[in-house]
Nucleic acid binder design. Structure first.
Length: 551
RNA sequence: GGCAGGGUAGCUCAGCCGGUCAGAGCGCACGACUCAUAAUCGUGAGGUCGGGAGUUCAAGUCUCCCCCCUGCUACCA
């Protein structure tokens, strides 16, 4: 019986290239998870898109003197290229610029308004009279009132780390124009999080399967008490507020971005030809929805988005939010788009095979703590783990079958105990490794798979078919046929992480169709099968790290 | 400052409802083998589990204090 699973992935801002941290932290875990679930026979839809609104995009556009849409188009194309080359398979990767998304966002807004979960309130805001624009705190700079640092931001002083209020800055000026900001009143719509707090607490309290940091952080925030948040802004780039007389404001990006999960699923449905196909993924309580995000985004996915959904009514709340920590540089520095530090995915893809990258990144998924990306470590992992333990295993066995059995899988009689044992281990791995994937413990899934590969290497050494074949062909035949079956099992177990090379291996082993088509199943390579000529699945990297720095 | 997560072998990380929890992989040393991308297999070297105090028969595993890293702190998302 199959499950229905919605895989939601954080929406990258379309104003930069993607770096390793974003991919290892959210996108690749989601893809591995979705691939596993599809293999396991579940009904999966995976959606995301480029977040096209927000101040950073406007600022980038201003700096280049172009329209925001041009920035979005440029980087959206680069992002799509990254997915293609890395083998990230979305059912839909869209943007927040579609008519469908605007309509969905406005529909949600109006529903909340009807239900009195939105209200208007005026607040003081800093305004740049030269740019004729309201300023977020971080776009104001001046002298820190606490330590005297001259270039403190309105929200925080980078020198002494103090949290600031932009109004308290000495000699404040706009980072956009240098003008002195003035205070102006502005009216906005606020979401009544205070109203939804009790329901959220009740719901979060039941999510015992969430990761410790996600659960504790969310409970902590709820216990401190929520504050209503403004969901509109004084900007011109964004989803229009569907209310008379609000033409000069827009729905703010954090509100429309999370709604993107819903609008993207609707858009996917429309593209499949069944516009109603999104409903089971959102309206059936048995559907499980997973949100793959970084740790900086937890509050939006465990509090605000659920609050919006609760307020809207009739839609599923997140089942799990397996937020990851960060992937840092070997120097300990963060991968940061805004600082320009980090490794761009496209640079990496220019140099290394996608499965090499996917495998290495999976081994450093920051599932429990920040992890480190290092190119020399990637090379070492490729050569000393991926190839030595796994690639070589497939290669040595297929080569032996060609050398000694004309490339035809030999038949076996009754199996020796050690052959039975390794077969049983391979069969059992489908349960254990499957459970790890299903629980989003991807590193464990890979480690368990590699343990099976090591066991297969050990089995080969013990049975030494290269020796046995000279004196007892039946013995050697049994060894090789058994090893092939274990290799075929590993092909399936590792397919979510290594989709490209396991597809090749699938062909090399003489199978038709796709790995996906065969499903999450233990399956021998039938006797009599003609294997293709042995070819290495992976290329050893002999070079020094070439370096693929950001910028 | 407050809240949350993390600080375990050279490296990357598990373990954390207290008692085979002092581990895995890589690297390193030695040995075996030679089918295979000099790959594989076996053996080994031992890290005061960030620091200090406490609870307990027993603590990386619980409590308290301190140090360091990261995120959030709601007008970056």
């Amino acid at each position: 019986m199959s499950d229905r699973i919605l895989v939601c992935v954080a929406w990258p801002y379309a104003n930069y290239l993607l770096h390793v941290g974003q991919v290892a932290g959210a996108v690749l875990p989601a893809d591995v998870f979705a691939r596993y679930q599809r293999l396991a026979g579940n009904e999966v839809v995976m959606v995301s898109g480029s977040d096209s609104h927000g101040t950073p995009i406007t600022v980038t556009a201003d700096r280049e003197g172009v329209e925001p849409r041009e920035i979005v188009d440029r980087y959206h194309a680069k992002i799509l290229e990254t997915w293609e080359r890395l083998g990230i398979v979305y059912d839909l990767y869209t943007t927040t610029l579609t008519d469908n998304h605007y309509a969905t966002t406005q529909e949600v807004f109006l529903r909340l308004l009807e239900k009195d979960l939105l209200y208007r309130k005026s607040q003081d805001q800093l305004y740049d009279p030269q740019a004729e624009r309201f300023l977020p705190d971080r776009y104001v700079e001046g002298t820190c009132p606490i330590c005297g640092y001259g270039e403190a931001r309105g929200d925080q002083c980078d020198n002494c780390g103090s949290q600031l209020d932009a109004i308290d800055l000495i000699n404040p000026k706009s980072r956009m124009t240098g003008a002195i900001p003035v205070i102006r009143q502005s009216e906005h719509y606020f979401l009544r999080l205070t109203e939804l707090e009790a329901g959220l607490k009740d719901w979060v309290g039941k999510q015992a399967h969430w990761r410790r940091n996600v659960l504790n952080f969310t409970l902590g925030s709820l216990n401190e008490g929520l504050v209503d948040r403004a969901i509109t802004r004084d900007i011109s780039w964004g989803v229009p507020v569907p209310v008379e007389g609000w033409d000069d404001k827009r729905i703010y990006v954090w509100f429309d971005a999370v709604i993107g999960y819903l609008s993207a699923t609707r858009e996917w449905a429309g593209r499949t030809g069944d516009p109603e196909a999104w409903r089971p993924f959102w309206e059936d309580p048995a559907t499980r929805s997973y949100y793959f995000i970084g740790k900086d985004n937890i509050v939006f996915h465990t509090i605000i988005w659920p609050a919006i959904l609760m307020g809207y009514g009739g839609l599923d709340l997140p089942y799990d939010v397996p937020a990851n920590q960060y992937v840092n540089m070997p120097t300990g520095e963060k991968q940061s788009k805004s600082r320009g530090t980090g490794t761009w995915m496209l640079d990496l893809l220019d140099v290394y095979e996608p499965d090499t990258i996917r495998f290495y990144l999976t081994t450093i998924f920051p599932e429990t703590s920040d992890s480190v990306f290092a190119e020399d470590d990637l090379i070492r992992t490729n050569n000393d783990v991926l190839i030595a333990t796994w690639g070589n295993l497939a290669n040595r066995v297929i080569s032996m079958v060609h050398r000694n059995f004309e490339g035809i899988v030999p038949a076996t009689g009754e199996l020796a105990p050690e052959s039975e044992a390794i077969m049983a281990e391979a069969r059992a791995a489908f349960t254990t490794v499957g459970a790890e994937y299903n629980a989003c413990h991807f590193r464990n899934a890979v480690n368990d798979s590699m343990a099976l590969a090591k066991a297969a290497n050990r089995y080969l050494d013990e049975r030494a078919p290269w020796k046995a074949v000279k004196v007892d062909r039946v013995h050697a035949a049994e060894t090789l046929a058994t090893a092939l079956t274990v290799i075929n099992a590993l092909k399936v177990l590792l397919h979510p992480v290594l989709p490209f090379t396991t597809r090749r291996l699938h062909e090399d082993l003489g199978f038709d169709g796709t790995v996906l088509g065969h499903g999450w199943a233990f399956e021998p390579v039938p006797a009599g099968t003609h294997l293709r000529e042995a070819r290495p699945l992976y290329t050893k990297i002999e070079v020094e790290p070439v370096g693929a720095p950001a910028r």
